[in-house]
């Protein structure tokens, strides 16, 4: 952990970090982009999750919903991820010390694992149950977990900002 702390301290003192932290406009602009990216990606992921749980769009095949919406969610995620890195660079030492931020990173990692699990163990066999009204428990679980994890990310993200 010490090396991570050292890295954050070093990053905190770089000219770029100081610039992001001390000038008026970059931080609010980047933060707004971050929140819009979040709304777009999580808002769309939420919809995929509800389909996986069998709550909405039941008459549409899963592959239709996932296949058409996932590329949009991924783009939103990229915007969120890049702007998130910039937000971190602006205050690395504070982020390192904030418990909410550590929990957030953990939740993002778990959400990523969930996506990996979904694609490698669940969605791969989608043709077997694509049109059937009852979905496999795994698909429902992935949807539910994704929902909970992303809401957790939003909560801990907001709480990171309460000093």
């Amino acid at each position: 952990m010490a090396s991570i702390a050292n890295f954050c301290e070093w990053l905190n003192n770089t000219a770029f970090s100081v610039y992001l932290r001390q000038s008026d406009w970059p931080f609010p602009i980047i933060e707004t982009i971050h929140i819009l990216g979040l709304a777009v990606s999580v808002g769309i992921v939420f919809w995929i999750d509800l389909r996986l749980m069998g709550i909405i769009m039941r008459r549409e095949p899963i592959s239709d919903v996932v296949g058409q919406l996932e590329p949009l969610a991924v783009r939103g995620f990229m915007i969120m991820f890049l702007s998130g890195i910039l937000l971190f660079v602006s205050e690395p030492q504070y982020c390192y010390s904030a418990t909410a931020f550590r929990v957030k990173l953990l939740l993002v990692a778990l959400a990523g694992l969930n996506v990996w699990f979904f694609h490698s163990r669940v969605y791969r066999y989608v043709t077997q149950w694509d049109e059937s009204p009852s979905l496999p428990v795994r698909a429902r679980m992935v949807g539910f977990l994704s929902l909970v994890l992303w809401f957790g990310v939003i909560a801990t993200g907001r709480w990171t900002a309460y000093k």
Binding site: L36, A39, W47
Partner: peptide
Amino acid sequence: TILLGTIF
């Protein structure tokens, strides 16, 4: 977030 997602 949900609201913006649906609108989007």
